[in-house]
Computed example of a mutant assay.
Amino acid sequence: MKGQEQAHCAVELAGEVVWLLADKAVYWPARRMLVVADIHFGKAAAFRALGVPVPHGTTTQNLLALDALLASYACEEIVFLGDFLHARAAHAAATVAAMLAWRARHPRLRLTLVRGNHDAHAGDPAAALRIAMADEPHTVGGFSFCHHPETPASGYVLAGHVHPVFHLRADRGGMRLPCFLLGPSRAILPSFGAFTGGHAVRPGIGERVYVTADAAIFPLPAHC
């Protein structure tokens, strides 16, 4: 576990203590589970296939980010909250080879993917990745793992899809920071992917915002 005090915030959801990580994921200590939303493997490749010049190396960046989490937190399972693959271009040989090499480094790790809207178009990941596939809601204990935040579910919903960011305003300009949006019955996770963009959100009644910046996470005052 990281020594930095601001690397995570412990919160209670559905009667369980979970950690909101500065690395844009959730850790459920009781289950040794990481929860990751919207990693979008192959998005850059899909853009390049359309002739859009975008950076290379985002798949490697995403995999290294997962490695860093696994090195920091005792983990037996990762649950992906949809949009694991961005498009059919994510099945390109180089992308699949990189993911298979990563899987070979973590052979005992359980992987579960709750299908999202992009997964429906991209198709399921390669069988050799040994990812258990699930449709939303995928309920474990008091949590229902979903891609879409509005999915009807029996448990407290952990979802992605929105790619939430919060605009911190200042006298001159401001910053758009990835954030977690926590409400009475659901939490929306920031996008984990290295090339995914974000949608600005504002907390509603009973909702809390935790923003991530510079490897730290902190709650925003209710009046922000």
Rank of each mutant, 00 (worst) to 15 (best):
F41H: 12
F41S: 07
F41N: 04
F41M: 01
K43F: 09
A44Y: 03
A44M: 02
A44S: 14
A45S: 15
F47K: 11
F47C: 12
R48E: 10
R48W: 10
R48K: 13
A49W: 05
A49N: 08
L50F: 10
V52P: 11
V52M: 12
P53Y: 00
P55N: 06
P55W: 05
P55A: 08
P55I: 07
H56Y: 09
H56W: 08
G57A: 12
G57T: 12
G57H: 12
G57R: 10
T58N: 06
T58D: 11
T60A: 14
Q61C: 10
Q61D: 13
Q61V: 09
N62F: 13
L63E: 01
L63F: 03
L64G: 03
A65R: 15
L66A: 11
L69K: 04
L69C: 05
L69P: 13
L70D: 08
L70T: 15
L70I: 11
A71Q: 13
A71N: 11
Y73D: 04
Y73N: 04
Y73V: 10
C75Y: 00
C75T: 15
C75G: 02
I78G: 05
I78K: 04
I78F: 04
V79L: 10
F80G: 00
L81G: 02
G82T: 02
D83S: 03
F84K: 00
F84Q: 01
L85I: 03
H86S: 09
H86P: 12
H86R: 05
H86D: 01
R88Q: 11
A89G: 08
A89W: 08
A90M: 07
H91A: 04
H91P: 14
A94M: 06
T95L: 13
T95N: 14
T95E: 15
M99D: 01
M99L: 15
M99Y: 00
M99A: 11
L100W: 01
L100E: 07
A101N: 07
W102E: 04
W102Q: 00
A104K: 09
A104D: 05
H106P: 13
R108F: 06
R110C: 03
L111G: 03
T112D: 00
T112I: 07
T112E: 00
L113W: 04
L113R: 06
V114R: 01
R115D: 06
R115K: 13
R115F: 14
G116Q: 08
G116H: 03
H118T: 10
D119M: 12
D119T: 12
D119K: 09
A120N: 07
A120R: 11
H121L: 12
A122L: 09
A122G: 08
G123C: 09
G123S: 09
D124S: 15
D124L: 13
P125I: 11
P125F: 03
P125K: 02
A126G: 01
A127M: 08
A127L: 12
I131P: 08
A132H: 08
M133C: 09
A134R: 15
A134E: 14
D135V: 12
D135M: 12
E136A: 15
P137H: 07
P137V: 02
T139F: 01
T139W: 00
T139N: 03
V140M: 04
